[in-house]
Amino acid sequence: MTAELMSERRLAVLGKPIAHSKSPALHAAAYDVLGLPWVYERHEVDESTLAEFVKSRDSAWRGLSLTMPLKQTIQPHLDQIDRVGELTGAVNTVLFEWGGDTVHRAGFNTDVPGIVRALRAGGVDTVRRAHILGGGATAASAIVAASELGAESVLVSVRAPERAAALVPLAASVGLTIDIATFDAARDDAATGLVVSTLPGGVDVPLTFADDLRARVPLLDVAYEPWPSTLGQAWGDAGGVVLSGLAMLVHQALLQVRIFVGGDPFAPLPDEESVLAAMRAAVGLEADGTPVRK
């Protein structure tokens, strides 16, 4: 690593609310293994304060992680966005590249590969049809992730279908047929092979799933606080495979670390398996994304 990277750098996760975020623990674990004296913080920032926060960073800053409600509002403040970020309209990672007093801000979406990697680690390698709950930024990433797992179609359940209209051209662009339905009208069929809930933590899902579906179909609930969620508990009670948002968070954070360290989400880190193991341990996960067995 360069002498510049070995000096103390600052990073942070932004969002509102943000006090619950596990990102500082994940990143601290990674930089400890890598021997980097970097400081990773959390800051409560919303749409009204985002521009000022981003523009006021100095050359000590290496990058930012973004969560709700900022993934779809950061784009105007960036100089470049990666392909997945442009495709989904959602950016969760910003890299600051400094040249003297000038900064180039590059945006990335690591949620899509984070979802794919988390599901594969949990034994989900292929999907024919996915059912996604919610219609926001993470739902967009889940649609692209489903496509990468081989899905042919998706069902999206939302409270207000008109607010999910942007997901229709997105699904078409990755070769998926899409059905958008209200929660009370959504119906699964035998082709459903994955359920992904992108609803906020603590929100009750206004949808009932049959026992046989919960036993057969894996669930990724991107929420992780509080855990288990009502949906995750019901899934586990039926004997189904349940992954919390921590599994996705770990894998997307690993790709963020790749970006912050090497500028490239596709370039593995030095001794990456040890880095990933430390990140999982920091939030109590086994290699398959399930909680550590006590």
Rank of each mutant, 00 (worst) to 15 (best):
S147D: 04
I132W: 01
N109A: 07
A121L: 11
A137N: 08
G134V: 10
I132C: 04
R117W: 00
R120C: 05
A145Q: 05
V116Q: 11
N92A: 06
A106I: 14
T138A: 14
V112D: 06
I143F: 01
G150K: 13
A121I: 10
R128N: 07
S153R: 07
L87Q: 15
V91H: 08
F108A: 06
V112W: 04
P113L: 07
I143N: 02
H104L: 14
A130V: 11
H131V: 14
R117F: 00
H131E: 01
A145T: 13
V112M: 06
A137E: 05
V116D: 06
A121E: 12
E148Q: 15
V94G: 06
E86R: 15
F108N: 05
G122H: 08
V91I: 15
T93E: 09
T138V: 14
G135K: 04
G107K: 13
G89Y: 04
T138S: 14
V112K: 10
A146Y: 01
R129Q: 15
I132M: 03
V103P: 02
H104W: 02
L119D: 03
T102I: 12
G100A: 10
V127S: 06
A145W: 03
L87W: 02
E152R: 14
N109W: 03
I132Q: 06
A140T: 11
V112E: 07
P113F: 05
G122L: 09
G136M: 11
A106E: 03
R105V: 10
E97F: 00
G122T: 13
P113H: 04
R129V: 13
F96K: 08
E148K: 12
R83G: 03
G123M: 07
R105D: 01
V94R: 08
V84H: 00
G122A: 13
A137D: 04
A121H: 10
I132E: 02
G136I: 13
G85I: 13
R129K: 15
A142Q: 02
A140K: 11
T126P: 00
E97W: 00
T102N: 02
